[in-house]
Write a protein that binds this DNA or RNA. Structure first.
Length: 235
DNA sequence: GCGACAG
DNA sequence: ATCTTGTCGC
């Protein structure tokens, strides 16, 4: 990748069961997150997501590379690793990042921006999986979650594009964004090298006819093992 | 002390 | 996240 802010081994140590140590590490890595726009002209956008197999004993990550202009999928990569730790709210990245990094490495080229299924800085210590991935790889990232981990917000309108600031301890940490008319809003927050105000527009630009933006939606399909059969052949 | 809690 | 068909609503 480009500018790893820290060595991957230090930023993503093997899970040893020490929750307090993991939280302390998150607090330190959060200081490395850059919330100013600093991404190249968007030519290639990647989407990553994780699924599980065999009763959760196998972690399966998918990475999809799309043409930023047409949103057409260009390449895809899968990675399967034995699951090392349980799901612990707030520590999701330690459980899923190893597989995600391997899937990303499987792509034929480095993306200009990565969409991650989960929070960016909208996290108790400012280091959701999208922010963690950004710090580890040095790549610009944006977190797109389907529900809130922390924070509150005002009610938002029912149409595509309607939004409200997500606040936590008096600070804005993300945006609650309606990606399509009448659907449940997405929780958008920067991961790394993207500004709080910029993230929503990037996500909306990738939302076509579904609630989830194309990068994440396609990665989700691959990771969730329901990639066998698809939609109606006629449409 | 009692809930809440991305995926 | 995952186990799972049809059904209700825009």
């Amino acid at each position: 990748m480009k500018k790893p802010t820290v060595a991957a081994s230090d930023a993503l140590p093997a899970w040893d069961g020490d929750v307090a140590a993991a939280r302390a590490l998150q607090a330190r890595l959060a200081a490395r997150v850059r919330l100013e726009d600093d991404y190249p002209p968007l030519r290639w956008i990647a989407g990553v997501d994780v699924g599980f197999e065999a009763d959760g004993t196998v972690t399966r990550a998918a990475a999809v590379l799309l043409d930023a202009r047409t949103l057409a999928p260009q390449d895809e990569a899968l990675a399967r690793l034995p699951t090392r730790m349980p799901y612990i709210p707030g520590l999701l990245s330690f459980r899923e990042l190893p597989a995600v990094l391997e899937a990303l490495a499987g792509l034929p080229r480095t993306p200009d921006l990565v969409f991650v299924d989960g929070q960016g800085v909208a996290h108790p210590r400012g280091l959701g999986i999208a922010a963690h991935l950004g710090v580890v790889t040095g790549l610009p990232t944006v977190g797109v979650a389907k529900s809130i981990l922390v924070g509150t917000h005002d009610e938002i309108g029912p149409r595509r594009g309607d939004r409200a600031a997500l606040r936590y301890h008096g600070r804005t940490i993300g945006t609650v964004l309606r990606s399509k008319d009448g659907v449940r809003p997405l929780i958008v927050s920067p991961g790394h090298r993207v500004a709080l105000d910029t993230a929503p527009g990037l996500v909306l630009a990738c939302c076509t006819r579904y609630r989830l933006p194309e990068p994440t939606r396609l990665a989700d399909r691959l990771a969730s093992r329901r990639d066998r059969q698809d939609r109606l052949p006629g449409l």
